[in-house]
């Protein structure tokens, strides 16, 4: 029933692999994997709107950045624990998502894209100008606090411990997002993408439903933002600017919004290729832009959609061969 072909076995294998990964790769590469995981959450939260909901947003960085600032300020000023800080970052993202959502989910298509962009810019300008709180363009630096579990103190400054922390948050977040697609609310999101009017005429309050989805997307974007800021031990306006908003759009689109794990593929591929290519190909961004345009033109469902259609054709061919 679900379009992606992942099975439980495959998921268990991937998680096991992630658990032993620190034994297999260097610390530098491990940091890269942490980045991939954080952006995977961000891209998946975006895909609740884009792929599953059929809404093109140019303002998802607002929730990512708002979550990041909230996490950093709470940890620095109130000395809350890291898990609580990230959780509250998520709630801040949800709060902002709900507040903006009241207005944006009334709109569709280009108007929706423009209003999300306007809100993103408003939040960005606020972060830039409200120096006393946000530090303006200089941002806020802080120290990732250690984690206290019972009587144990876990040093999160050590890459290995931090990696496992991010892994737990990521598996939990992605698990939630995946589970959501299998529930009535997740299916309703698809219904509204396919035909919002029809959904209304069979008794769904599509406005409230869209608002709920938008709020949840804000929550997970906030979680990703809180994680990203904790990772870099720093937050600045680049967490919330238009480039961040279009980055997540590019990741999601290139990976493919039509399958659940497409955005994860996009987030990982862009992070990895960016790291590999940027060292010897100065203008890597041109390749990324070119890839994006090629996919828009010839594979509107991104890399995962391309893979699926090739595989389908392959299967059909195989079936044809065995028949003859």
């Amino acid at each position: 029933m679900h379009r992606s072909r992942f099975t439980w076995l495959q998921i268990v294998v991937v998680i096991l692999l992630l658990l032993v990964l620190p034994k297999l790769i260097s610390e530098y590469r491990l940091n890269l994997v942490i980045t991939m995981m954080i952006y995977s959450i961000f891209a998946l939260s975006y895909n609740m709107l884009f792929g599953q909901g059929g809404l093109l947003s140019f303002g998802h960085a607002a929730y990512f950045g708002f979550g990041a600032y909230t996490t950093v300020i709470l940890i620095k000023q109130l000395e809350v624990s890291l898990p609580l800080g990230i959780m509250l970052g998520g709630l801040a993202g949800a709060f902002l998502g709900c507040a903006f959502g009241v207005f944006v989910v009334r709109l569709r298509g280009v108007a929706f894209a423009l209003l999300t962009l306007a809100f993103n810019q408003l939040i960005y300008v606020t972060a830039e100008k409200w120096r006393s709180v946000t530090g303006g363009e200089d941002g806020i630096a802080f120290m990732r606090p250690n984690l206290f579990l019972g009587g144990w103190e876990i040093d999160l400054w050590a890459t290995l411990n931090w990696y496992y922390f991010v892994l737990i948050v990521t598996v939990f977040s992605i698990g939630c997002l995946w589970y959501l697609t299998l529930t009535p609310l997740g299916r309703l999101n698809l219904c509204m993408r396919e035909n919002e009017e029809r959904a209304r005429f069979i008794g769904y309050n599509t406005y409230a439903s869209r608002l709920l989805i938008y709020t949840l997307a804000g929550f997970f974007a906030g979680i990703a933002g809180g994680l990203a800021a904790s990772f870099q031990e720093f937050v600045t306006t680049t967490f919330i600017n238009l480039d961040k908003a279009t980055d997540v759009l590019m990741m999601t689109f290139i990976g493919g919004g039509g399958t659940f794990f497409g955005p994860v593929i996009g987030a990982c591929a862009l992070t990895l290729i960016n790291d590999l290519l940027s060292s010897w190909l100065e203008r890597w961004a041109i390749v990324q832009g070119g890839l994006f345009i090629l996919l828009v033109l010839y594979a509107p469902n991104g890399l995962s959609g391309l893979y699926m259609s090739i595989r389908e054709r392959w299967d059909a061919q195989k079936r044809g061969n065995t028949r003859s």
Binding site: R283, I286, F292, L297
Partner: peptide
């Protein structure tokens, strides 16, 4: 370019022009 994606709808056209804006900026820098 634009005419190729017309059938996918306006949001898709917006995506294409966004990609073009992105790549033109990078080309100009180059």
């Amino acid at each position: 370019l634009l005419r190729q994606v017309h059938r996918y709808g306006h949001a898709h056209e917006l995506l294409l022009t966004f990609g073009l804006a992105y790549i033109i900026e990078e080309l100009v820098k180059w």
